[in-house]
């Protein structure tokens, strides 16, 4: 690219300014979490912590329920993603490779289900879980999250499978595999990056949930997820913003790390099934 010096300066300046503005909340979250309590009530605010207070974090980890909530979030996300992946992989493969009567209808319904408002779906789910005695249990959350992950994962994986030439499993079958064997010995290993990206995305979906968690777990504080915990912190620790921000950062961290890995695959996931 041949750009003149003034053009380069303009470009980089714009970039830096835009990124600074857009990422300021993230910066502010980090800075606040390290600030001493008294600095939070200073006007003008401190934009750089004079002496970072790491004990905010150690306190949070050793003296609050935060670690437990993080564990719950992780547990729910892993199990919900695992179960969803299990059925989604098979369904996606079937939708990608077989032309069946009714197969298209199932695929279409899965796609349309993305339009269901969660605030509506939660009403019957609430009744069902109450009847099954699942209220307050992490299973209620796992099932609820599967309602979102299964449709999305099925479409995302179908996209990956569609991009793998069918000749690959045909070759495997000629080589002596059963269709089942061709799926497990050839197609799944080949689509490993896609599987990983889909699973990671499912994890993100589950981790980010607040609606289901606050509704189903409201009376079971021990089973709270990180998001419910943080929303409650907001009410309880009114002014201890350093604690709240530290907790927030801990809750955001897994997703930010996932994001680094997911970047390349993000578009496929974001648009899963939205194309044609």
């Amino acid at each position: 690219m041949n750009r003149t010096l003034p053009q380069s300066i303009l470009l980089y300046t714009t970039l830096v300014v835009v990124i600074c503005i857009l990422l300021f909340p993230v910066y502010w979250m980090v800075i606040t979490s390290l600030a001493p309590s008294n600095a939070l009530r200073s006007f003008p605010p401190q934009f750089w912590p004079q002496n970072p207070q790491w004990q905010t974090y150690t306190n949070l980890i050793f003296n609050t329920d935060m670690p437990r909530w993080l564990m719950n979030s992780a547990l729910v996300a892993v199990v919900a993603t695992g179960i969803s992946m299990l059925v989604s992989v098979l369904a996606a493969y079937s939708l990608s490779r077989y032309t069946m009567k009714g197969g298209e209808a199932v695929g279409l319904f899965i796609l349309m289900s993305k339009m269901l408002p969660a605030t509506m779906l939660i009403i019957p789910l609430f009744g069902i879980f109450r009847n099954l005695g699942l209220m307050g249990s992490l299973w209620s959350l796992i099932i609820a999250h599967a309602t979102a992950i299964v449709p999305f994962a099925t479409w995302m994986l179908k996209g990956y499978f569609d991009s793998i030439p069918q000749e690959l499993e045909q070759a495997a079958q000629v080589d002596g595999c059963t269709p089942w064997g061709a799926l497990f010995r050839v197609i799944l290993p080949v689509s490993a990056p896609g599987l990983a990206a889909t699973a990671l995305y499912g994890f993100v979906l589950s981790w980010a949930d607040y609606l289901y968690a606050r509704t189903f777990l409201a009376n079971a504080a021990g089973n709270w997820t990180a998001n419910v915990g943080i929303a409650t912190f907001k009410g309880e620790y009114q002014t201890d913003w350093n604690v709240i921000m530290a907790a927030s950062l801990l809750a955001a961290l897994p997703i930010m790390i996932a994001y680094l890995f997911l970047q390349r695959y993000l578009v496929g996931g974001l648009t899963a099934g939205a194309g044609k």
Binding site: L23, V26, Y259
Partner: peptide, 13 residues
């Protein structure tokens, strides 16, 4: 990057 911040976390911030 804000994509990777859970909604509740973003709101609290």
């Amino acid at each position: 990057l804000p994509w990777a911040i859970p909604e509740v976390v973003a709101v609290v911030t």
